[in-house]
Design a binder for these strands. Structure first.
Lengths: 211, 211
DNA sequence: GTTAAACTATGATAATTGTCATGTTTTCCG
DNA sequence: CGGAAAACATGACAATTATCATAGTTTAAC
């Protein structure tokens, strides 16, 4: 967004609208046609896909400042993921026409979007390799660290995004019971501690080294 | 490439060079700085990454007409995958400057690249979900079908790309022995047949439905 | 053509992960 | 606050997959 001219920014500001979602709300579903892009101003949402075995898989989490729906708007295809609020969210919505027109008229903005997608692609490919090569235990550890690094911790040290065990399982690609079991193990090993469903990373170094 | 003007095409043609690789040759390694993009004119290569457990994982296969190194050139980062020839390959190499200049000056070409990346991203995310949710058996079956659909079959019906069992294991994300075992099962079940290392899909319908 | 090296095959066993069952704790709402 | 629903926890067992060992086949180089 920083590469837009003043004039373009004014246009975007003029046509964008704010939208609010509550925890659990569906922002959009798989296989929908979007008519714009969402940018998160506040809150977190998960991008999920229902797989053929009936389970939801969470592909990634999106937080403040991130764009949702970019890919679908660019490719002109329907969404292949759904977006679901993990807490209360404030979004701003920019109509498709506005985004596409900026992409077509502003070289720098367009290149920026290109770099974004390139980055997303790298992350997706890395994720694929993790999924293929690492154990569930390692993936749970990595997810905890990722959530801590990306969305931060509260003053009391607990992860500021609190996900259910089912959410963790869905990110890691395992059964909910397995995720629960592994988090319990981590507790016993002193790697994390919990208070209700809140999680605190107690030993990041060793958590990173989990085998 | 079709969206370039005659003048631009002339420039690309002027500065591109042809390169040849033999089966097993490394086109580039992980963590290299590329100074251009490769386009496959003939042959197949695999994009792999060495994972922390010491195994190579094959992220995707690239065939005729596909661009390699696009992502790195756009993001300006080092490669995160290596490219290795699976058979004899003829490439054409276009210098980075030429590609970037076309992206910056030709709106339509730039949008085309954008759509390419969007497509790649979707494939990577779908792959991630497959990896997370499907059994090794299902992934082997899907890989066979993918290879058949994408790279075709010879007149005699055998897959025209012949991968080793190790290659299949590396794509599917499993141990070589497991890949071998599953292919043997498929043979017994009449889903495929083999002749040396060549594979023929005998019953595509049931192969698609494997559980 | 022969022969070593690479690849394919298969069994036995261990490790990992999933599933089902059941009980406890936490959260949320009236 | 109380009670129901959701989330968490854990055991027992089954299924999947990895690992190690060993042997047969194919490929490719000389």
């Amino acid at each position: 967004m920083k590469t837009l001219t003043k004039e373009e920014l004014k246009q975007v500001t003029a046509c964008k609208t704010n939208r609010f979602y509550k925890k659990g709300d569906i922002i959009f579903n798989e296989n929908e046609l979007l008519n714009g892009v969402y940018c998160i101003r506040e809150g977190i949402c998960k991008m999920t896909k229902l797989s053929s075995n009936g389970k939801d898989h969470t592909v990634k989490l999106m937080g403040k400042g991130q764009l949702i729906g970019q890919r679908s708007i660019i490719s002109g295809e329907r969404t292949h993921l759904s977006a679901i609020a993990l807490n209360d969210i404030e979004m701003c919505f920019v109509p498709k026409e506005q985004i596409l027109s900026n992409i077509k008229s502003n070289q720098e903005f367009s290149f920026n979007v290109l770099q974004n997608l390139a980055q997303d692609l790298r992350e997706a490919e890395d994720g694929l390799i993790n999924m293929a090569q690492k154990t569930v235990r390692q993936r749970v550890a990595e997810t905890l660290i990722y959530v801590g690094n990306t969305f931060g911790e509260n003053e009391d040290g607990y992860l500021s995004v609190s996900l259910s065990r089912e959410d963790y399982a869905s990110i890691v690609g395992t059964a909910t019971e397995s995720a629960i079991r592994i988090l319990s193990q981590f507790k016993k090993e002193g790697l994390i501690s919990t208070k209700g469903k809140k999680i605190k990373i107690e030993n990041k170094i060793d958590l990173e080294r989990v085998e």
